[in-house]
């Protein structure tokens, strides 16, 4: 037996006209499957619409105020964290550009030129230090390889501990 369009009518929210209603009723009298479906949907939706709405525990608004305060604190910490990170990245970019590029070759306005000259002086010193560190680094494996390995291990451990510390701080902030 075909259950269409009766199934569509049973589950549709649109109201049926008189003729459709009559046809559906006639079909329901002879079809157990559609009767079961019709009764089930009526009962299920009736249970939904007549059930009581759950209420929150007393003090919801106060808890919301507390959560709002924590949320703001978290956002502030996050903003500080992001600003610090951005500052760190910017400082690195400036430092790298100062170390690797000769800024004095660019035609700067006078005031800016004075600053560039000072930065270039720092750059010159930085390059010297960089060279010295490079030479030292090159010399270490030849002179004291064990010492070099030890220093590398300490640096790696330091990086690992720093990352772990940063992650734990971030986790702590996230969980308030």
């Amino acid at each position: 037996m075909s259950h269409q369009p009766f199934e569509i009518w049973i589950f549709s929210d649109d109201s049926l006209d008189e003729a459709q209603q009559h046809i559906l009723e006639e079909h329901l009298e002879s079809c157990q499957t559609c009767t079961t479906l019709s009764n089930a949907v009526t009962m299920a939706t009736s249970v939904l619409s007549t059930s009581e709405s759950p209420s929150p525990q007393p003090g919801f608004t106060q808890r919301w105020h507390n959560k709002l305060a924590l949320h703001r604190q978290y956002q502030k910490s996050r903003r500080t964290w992001l600003l610090t990170l951005a500052g760190f990245i910017l400082a690195n970019i400036i430092l790298l550009s100062v170390v690797f590029f000769d800024l004095t070759t660019i035609n700067w306005p006078y005031e800016l030129g004075q600053i560039v000259v000072k930065i270039s002086l720092i750059a010159t010193h930085s390059r010297q230090y960089w060279r010295a560190i490079s030479n030292l680094a090159n010399a270490f494996p030849v002179i004291i390889p064990t010492f070099f390995v030890l220093v590398a291990a300490l640096i790696a451990a330091g990086i690992f501990l720093t990352i772990t510390w940063i992650r734990s701080i971030k986790k702590l902030i996230k969980t308030y």
């Binding site: 569509i8 549709s12 079961t36 089930a40 949907v41 299920a44």
Partner: peptide, 12 residues
């Protein structure tokens, strides 16, 4: 429509 069908099946 789909949800009502599913509810009816669950009810049955």
């Amino acid at each position: 429509f789909r949800a009502r069908r599913s509810l009816a099946d669950a009810w049955i």
